[in-house]
Design a protein around this nucleic acid. Structure first.
Lengths: 351, 351
DNA sequence: TTGCGGTGAACAAACGATTGCCCTATGTTA
DNA sequence: TAACATAGGGCAATCGTTTGTTCACCGCAA
């Protein structure tokens, strides 16, 4: 149905290549004013837009990026996606969204499809440690950026936050409130954020000379249901914790549910701190104290880095690591006021 | 970097077309067993995958769908998107996501890009009444499906719920609880859901012989901030309502905030009912009573209808309208228990 | 020997755009 | 008047597949 160059050329009594040059405003084009006008009128009249597929084949660029994440219904990834789109759309790119539910096989399948489609670049936020999929991307020479999680430290283009620091801030905050039995709803040890946030938690305890109790660390994964189960099991202990640091806000949301189920009051009976500062965190009652990271910026910066790689053609492992920031709300503090603690938001020297 | 047919053909000492036929398992292909084996080995060894762009050009299908919505950070659209992807991926399609923020110009720009890319179909959930963009889609003969909102009643392929019925159920419920001054946080009159839910609200009042007070209807739009402002202005009235029906759950969330700001207790001082039953609704405290619609199914059914259009080539305005269902939670009821009220979920006869 | 049928593959024309190069008038200069 | 520059476009290859058609060869029967 849409008009082609050939048809326009026939109607304008010129060769298709001439129409193409006019449409693309070819700088070195010498053409009679009258011919140009005739063609331009036709272009406007028919609302000609070159077939993107044909263009993609010839120019070897599709103007399509792909975003691979676990699950878009997780507010963290939704916000990140907006950042990406906001960075990509103004430059003419559109974005394919692929959900993996954290299943490696689905991630692999998506990436294979994406490669076959010749997307110009991939933003991957569902990677795990030593991810073969990332090695495959490298090997394919597909431009890509990892977000939030990395596969091998320092090797790939990456945008994220300093997870150890964030977790340390959160745990120190709980320690500062006088808590000694501090639990941790932990991420999987197969994911960088899981490992590093646990590490930050442990190092804060060690620094305060609190002996870490292995029984207080329960793997919850990153989503609500896991958080609820893990919290439930922590609360069933003989000596349950008086505070927990959850690896993500969604896990913390699950913890809210479990606490409620056990008839506990937050923060009096149980203090909770999460990670990410998703919009939902501020809407909970009491508000969820959490580690703020610039989610939208994760996306827009990742898009920027990716486009830079695409446009320059150099695939350098550029890394941007943000310093996270503690946000204290009602879940860990008697006062209802919201406070910002820690360093002000800034790029770390790593950039 | 990826291998092409021509390269494979050279390595296997055959013509590219032969490789293509082997790769595609051409049924009518007569070929020596030895040649076939040689080619197949090569295909596996190189992990050959045909260039999707070239294939798209030749076959005139891209295996790409596009989803156009206001904002993916709205949980409603995130859930819907999952439904769409879940319907599309198994059939080999991947999905472009386009956010418009409800701005017609952005919607238009996205649709134009999508058409140029030759996406196989579009799912549009950001349409407004008499939307020229929809007329344009029709005119282009692009397969498309409208979700949740329609542009002109009964004209386009559509998946959604019976908005009048849902709003009526919600309002009747509040009336049944004894409320007389019932406010409405209304959607824009430019959007079908806004118009129809207001209509359902009014008809329930009329049926109960309650005089509708225009002062109690405030346009909030569909998101949190608008809901908060609208609720705020309702609560500043001399005779504020004792209950409100919000056009969406997100608007209701805003109302929660405003009520809190005014020091009101939900549901005692103010009862609230929303619409959509997003996951967040059940997590609020108290739980938000709302009109349940099968959001994920909106997406998967829309994908199914769209693929049907694409594959059969017939663009019939197939419509699926779900009967919504009232879910009573703490925001409109003294008891904390969750209840389901109204007809059981089912497709309406319209299908 | 001629003809025929079947094998096993090659040929070539698309799909729609982009772009380096070539060609033909016309006017200009020596 | 011959050589040449320039303006104004046309030609054709190319991107990587798909697919209808053709072709060469071989064995076999008439």
């Amino acid at each position: 149905m849409p008009v082609t160059l050939k048809e326009l050329a026939a109607r304008a009594q010129v060769h298709p290549s001439t129409v193409s040059r006019v449409a693309n405003n070819d700088p070195g084009l010498r053409i009679a004013a009258t011919t140009r006008t005739r063609i331009e009128a036709l272009l406007r009249e028919t609302e000609y837009r070159p077939n993107g597929v044909a263009r993609g084949l010839k120019l070897r660029q599709t103007l399509v990026l792909a975003v691979v994440i676990p699950d878009i219904t997780n507010p963290f990834f939704a916000a990140m996606f907006r950042g990406i789109e906001d960075g990509a759309t103004p430059r003419g790119y559109q974005v394919l969204l692929c959900n993996t539910d954290g299943i490696p096989e689905r991630q692999r399948a998506h990436l294979h499809s994406l490669a076959a489609r010749r997307v110009d670049g991939v933003i991957l936020a569902s990677t795990f440690l030593k991810d073969p999929a990332v090695r495959w991307l490298r090997h394919q020479r597909t431009p890509y950026v990892l977000v939030n999680r990395f596969s091998e430290d320092g090797v790939d283009p990456f945008v994220g936050s300093d997870d150890v620091m964030g977790a340390t801030l959160a745990t120190q905050h709980l320690i500062g409130l006088g808590h000694v039995r501090i639990g941790h709803l932990a991420g999987q040890p197969t994911v960088s954020t899981g490992v590093l946030r646990r590490k930050g938690y442990l190092s804060a305890l060690a620094e305060a000379e609190i002996l870490a109790d292995p029984a207080l660390i329960v793997e919850s994964g990153f989503v609500e249901e896991g958080g609820a189960q893990a919290m439930d099991s922590l609360l069933s202990l003989n000596h349950p914790p008086t505070a927990v640091f959850a690896v993500t806000d969604m896990a913390a949301v699950g913890a809210y549910g479990a606490a409620r189920k056990h008839g506990l009051h937050i923060p009096d009976d149980l203090a909770i701190v999460g990670y990410n500062d998703i919009p939902l965190a501020g809407r909970l009652i009491p508000g969820l104290s959490t580690v703020h990271v610039p989610i939208h910026e994760f996306g827009s910066v990742a898009a920027r880095i990716l486009l830079e790689q695409i446009e320059t053609g150099v695939l350098t492992p550029r890394r941007v690591v943000f310093a996270p920031q503690l946000v204290v709300r009602g879940s860990s503090h008697a006062g209802a006021d919201e406070q910002l603690v820690g360093r002000s938001a800034q790029r770390s020297p790593a950039e």
